[in-house]
């Protein structure tokens, strides 16, 4: 807030990251099994001599998918910054902690029991169920990782992994009992993919992104959360209340993402870490940078996932894990030394 050096660093970082994102967005939009030129894209968007084939590629396939990938990256990146901030733990990530898996399992549960009843309305209901699942996971982790009035780092990671595989197994079990068509949908949640993105799912996600507003308004509190509990209390911070608001909002955000893309891990891990290297410790700078990094990571990974073995697709979650796992191990080793 006072620092003279971080302001310019923030602007500089955005000036590099945003064009990078636009470039990746553009490449994803124009390249693929069916290549489009920039003219085709502009003509299609501005409705000048529209070609039905271009319309189909752009509006039904590529654009919704890129938009979903961007939103998921944005949401997971920001949620990661919040969760790392309140747990004071650089290894915390909604994926590793099992919040993704909890949300995913709840959504599969919902699909299993209620999919038929709600019909097309069910897409809108999914984030809500995801929220419940995410909350259940968060509460369990909180209870198990709590030791002597604080969250123990090792317990946090260990319970996270346990919760994650537990909920993953539940989701898998339910998926196996589903009809073949539902099963295909359900497997998406366990690996993480944006391939079934459509405008309806974007509509279901968008309202949840309003949660970014209260989160961003509390970014200053996340700076304070870098201090110990007794210092925070002395400063007059209502710790448990503020933690609950921040955690709840970020789980809401994660659930909205998971309901469309399934469990994509590591974004919330890598985003904040890279952002801190770029802009320092102030969360009002870290958060937007995290969001943009998340967008770049997911859109780029989805492009790779889609085209690497084209026409076969790998799920975007796997591509991100290929980068994320070594990154996680690197952070783990660094934390130990």
């Amino acid at each position: 807030m006072l620092s003279k050096s971080t302001g310019p660093r923030y602007v500089k970082s955005l000036l590099i990251l945003i064009p990078l994102f636009v470039t990746i967005f553009y490449i994803s939009l124009t390249n693929g099994t069916f290549d489009l030129t920039i003219n085709d894209v502009i003509h299609t968007l501005l409705r000048i001599n529209p070609v039905p084939a271009h319309d189909l590629v752009l509006f039904d396939y590529r654009l919704p998918r890129i938009v979903v990938a961007s939103l998921v990256g944005l949401g997971l990146g920001i949620a990661g910054a919040v969760i790392q901030g309140i747990t004071k733990n650089g290894l915390a990530d909604p994926g590793i902690l099992g919040i993704n898996a909890g949300a995913g399992a709840a959504i599969v549960l919902f699909l299993f029991f209620f999919h038929e009843q709600f019909g097309s309305f069910s897409v809108l209901m999914q984030p809500l169920f995801g929220l419940i699942g995410g909350l259940v996971a968060a509460v369990i982790i909180y209870l198990l990782a709590w030791k002597n009035g604080r969250i123990d780092t090792q317990r946090l990671i260990l319970t996270g992994i346990a919760i994650s595989s537990g909920f993953g197994a539940l989701a898998m079990y339910l998926s196996l009992k589903m009809k073949a068509s539902d099963f295909e949908m359900a497997t998406v949640w366990t690996t993480g993919s944006v391939y079934n993105a459509n405008w309806q799912s974007i509509l279901a996600m968008l309202p949840w992104f309003l949660l970014i507003i209260p989160i961003y308004r509390k970014s200053y509190l996340l700076d304070l959360f870098q201090l110990e509990e007794s210092s925070l209390k002395s400063l007059g911070v209502s710790i448990e209340k503020e933690k609950a608001i921040l955690l709840l909002s970020s789980i809401g955000l994660v659930s909205a993402c998971v309901s469309v893309s399934g469990g994509i891990g590591f974004i919330g891990l890598m985003g904040p870490h890279i952002a801190k290297q770029l802009v320092g410790l102030q969360h009002r700078y870290i958060m937007p940078i995290c969001g943009v990094i998340g967008m770049i990571l997911v859109v780029a990974s989805d492009f790779i996932a889609k085209n690497l073995f084209s026409p076969a697709e790998i799920s975007v979650g796997i591509i991100i894990s290929i980068i994320g796992v070594p990154y996680f191990l690197y952070l783990l080793l660094k934390a130990r030394s």
Binding site: M1, L2, S3, D223, Q226, L227, E228, S230, G280, L281
Partner: peptide
């Protein structure tokens, strides 16, 4: 009391 080492005094 502890705080991150990179944190600036005035901050």
């Amino acid at each position: 009391p502890v705080a991150p080492g990179e944190l600036e005094v005035e901050e």
